[in-house]
Design a protein around this nucleic acid. Structure first.
Ligand code: FES
Ligand code: FES
Lengths: 144, 144
DNA sequence: TGTTATTCGGATAATTTTATCCTATTTTAA
DNA sequence: TTAAAATAGGATAAAATTATCCGAATAACA
């Protein structure tokens, strides 16, 4: 459904949120360890999120990644997915036609569209805060 | 969402259905042309569907691919997706945890599960016949 | 019987995604 | 001023997916 890059991006963002609530920056190393991802690859993804202004990075000793505490509850999953995987998952045709087009639909268009729209709504309505709280309260986990 | 291989597999199956209703076998070449897919790659996918007993192949002159006319309405999209992409899309964790597990859920589990289940239901309830009919009646298309 | 049309299957290549490595840059603090 | 701790970013490699090529097997038919 999502790319590995996107999965890492989401998990990393959740972990960063968790720490940003406590004014703590987290290092790449700590993130990769926590979400069980390859370090260098994770670095690329974080850079991408920084460029998209979703997270913030601070270089040098005592640096790391953080998210504006006041922004956490307004950052939606859709922003992260968009930044990393683009909008294909929302707009693409289920059977790979060049574009999904009501006026030139593929055979699964109607059925596919409703699923895709539900996914879209889910991603647009879910914010980082609620996800982070589930980790904090111990009812959800970032790794197996 | 689906792999290219899966997209081709679905489109090919629809086109074969369409012809099987009229007792016509279709060649690899005709299929690839109709669904706008690379021929040799499509061949691999068709072989896969044959091995999974979803479609039937006949070698030699006047050979080609066909689907048992009486089976078309009972072949579900889910069978094709399963044959080609496996069941990850139904059962996998949205954030890539090793398994999706109610008792050890990732932060998006609940929200993701409902989308995934809707997708699953859609694929399990959609059969080849209805898709083929949409092509036949001209309200849907297999290529751009 | 031989030729032609076809699928099958193995080997290989191209592309994309995922992952690693190394150096440069920035910042803190001793 | 120097050392240490960190991110940035370019180059490269590994793995997975997508795509191509070619000979073998099979079946129809002249
Ligand atoms: S045209 Fe295929 S999903 Fe809309
Ligand atoms: S555990 Fe992640 S979707 Fe169920």
């Amino acid at each position: 459904m999502f790319s590995k890059a996107c999965e890492y991006g989401i998990k990393a963002s959740i972990f960063i949120s968790l720490n940003s609530y406590e004014e703590k920056r987290v290092s790449l190393k700590a993130i990769a360890k926590e979400i069980n991802s390859p370090e260098a690859f994770t670095a690329k993804i974080l850079q991408d999120l920084v460029r998209h202004d979703i997270i913030n990075s601070v270089k040098g000793a005592h640096g790391g990644f953080e998210i504006d505490k006041n922004a956490i509850s307004s950052i939606k999953l859709s922003q992260i997915v968009n930044a990393i995987d683009g909008d294909d998952i929302y707009k693409g045709c289920g059977l790979g036609l060049h574009t999904c087009d009501e006026n030139h639909p593929c055979p699964v268009h109607d059925k596919f569209k409703s699923v895709r729209d539900e996914l879209k709504n889910m991603l647009e309505q879910t914010n980082l805060e609620e996800l982070a709280l589930d980790i904090k309260s111990g009812i959800a986990f970032l790794k197996t």
